[in-house]
Write a protein that binds this DNA or RNA. Structure first.
Lengths: 220, 220
DNA sequence: ATTTAACCTTACAGTTTTGTAACATTGGGA
DNA sequence: TCCCAATGTTACAAAACTGTAAGGTTAAAT
């Protein structure tokens, strides 16, 4: 979605995007911008910071209260203040006019790539050696073999993956698993670790999770 | 982690970061960069593109084969070619020297914020109106109330959330749920949707998931 | 207004998940 | 070397999850 008041630039951008297999929508009603954005729910917004009737930064700030749709700010002036503000208000990137079309496309591609995790269910793959772990469905894939993890195993494995090569304390894991519930046996964690290890063993990862006695566990 | 050959800049950066509650590590052995990075497993890398013994772009390219650690490229020349290359090789952002310390900090903050989904188990929160959904643990929070979703409900709700305001076909959901398994009753989806709706109803979201007969479902 | 395919609800039983308990093992310090 | 706290394993029963079937409801098309 293009939010920009100069018709000429709008059309240019539109063509550029459509020539590159994006679907472009131009926001018409600046006064009703927020509603229109949420209605259309675009995959990405190109937002000019200087448009009549509305303050681009304020719009971004309001949008961020309701949505994480990626936003690339387009600024006329290469002002560091604008840049700083855009980023702190939640823009995903910014570019200054006049822009180089190729760079704009690269930036759009880069933003979409790094935000797609939030927009595409299949973007949840974490990689561990030869394994791919779909942290949404809790499925570990090794070539053609697939292993399903239970919810607890998923939580533990995700946590370890996200802290690869770092020691993770038992307490951290306890909190992550049972944060807000009543007391559970300390041993419940040990058992769940054991179960996870067994599943990893099935696909040849025998010592993936190492115990550091007195400290915690480490995935390496 | 700072990857930079000018000692002076290294120290400046180090101080700046530590004054702002980051932990800074300076890469020493440029020839063994990739191993050292993976060993240290930093939360973010500041990578100068022009360092001796190694080509910054090549390093980034190699790093990206093994890890998604966020990288901010630091370039001396404001060359559009560099910029374009960095982004296409997988840098998360870039900044040109001489940099404004405040902007560098903002950019670091922004990159960490948007990438933390992959690095921090608590970064998996999706927002839907007044609800927060932890898509990792499958917990929906509304103020102080919490509701737990089962694995199937999690998958459906995540998918709908990621396609908010868009019609999602039953087939899409079937594939997402049972992609690689044997045949399941068409009705199994209906039942799971029904269960999810009931849980949403418990916290006051009665018509959150709307049926578009013949087309699919829409979360709005 | 009627029809009918699409969708919903409920109950149920097979299966999986999970915390607990009881006992086994381990590794680091004294 | 011995000891013991920390960690592992196994079995088990309660609880949760999930697909199916059977029958009900709905809305779009004729």
């Amino acid at each position: 979605m293009i939010i920009e008041d100069e018709k000429l630039i709008c059309n240019e951008l539109s063509k550029l995007l459509e020539n590159n297999n994006y679907e472009a929508v131009i926001l018409k009603d600046f006064k009703n911008a927020l509603n229109e954005i949420l209605e259309v729910s675009p995959d990405l917004i190109l937002l000019d910071i200087n448009i009549p009737f509305i303050n681009g930064e304020a719009l971004l700030q309001n949008l961020r209260k309701e949505s994480n749709i990626p936003v690339i700010m387009v600024t006329s002036i290469n002002s560091e203040t604008d840049e700083a503000l855009s980023i702190s208000y939640g823009a995903d990137d910014y570019i200054t006019k006049p822009y180089n079309p190729n760079i704009l496309l690269l930036r759009i591609g880069a933003v979409l790539k790094r935000t797609k995790t939030n927009y595409n269910t299949n973007g949840n793959e974490l990689i561990y050696k030869e394994l791919k772990f779909d942290s949404q469905k809790g499925i570990i894939k090794k070539e053609d073999i697939e292993i399903e993890l239970t919810k607890n195993e998923m939580i533990i494995f995700s946590y370890l993956l996200n802290h690869q090569n770092k020691i993770v304390t038992r307490e951290e894991l306890m909190t992550t698993l049972w944060d807000n519930s009543e007391y559970v046996n300390e041993n419940a964690l040990t058992v769940n670790i054991s179960r996870l290890r067994n599943k990893l063993k099935e696909i040849g990862y025998v010592d993936a999770i190492d115990t550091r006695k007195g400290l915690g566990y480490i995935l390496s």
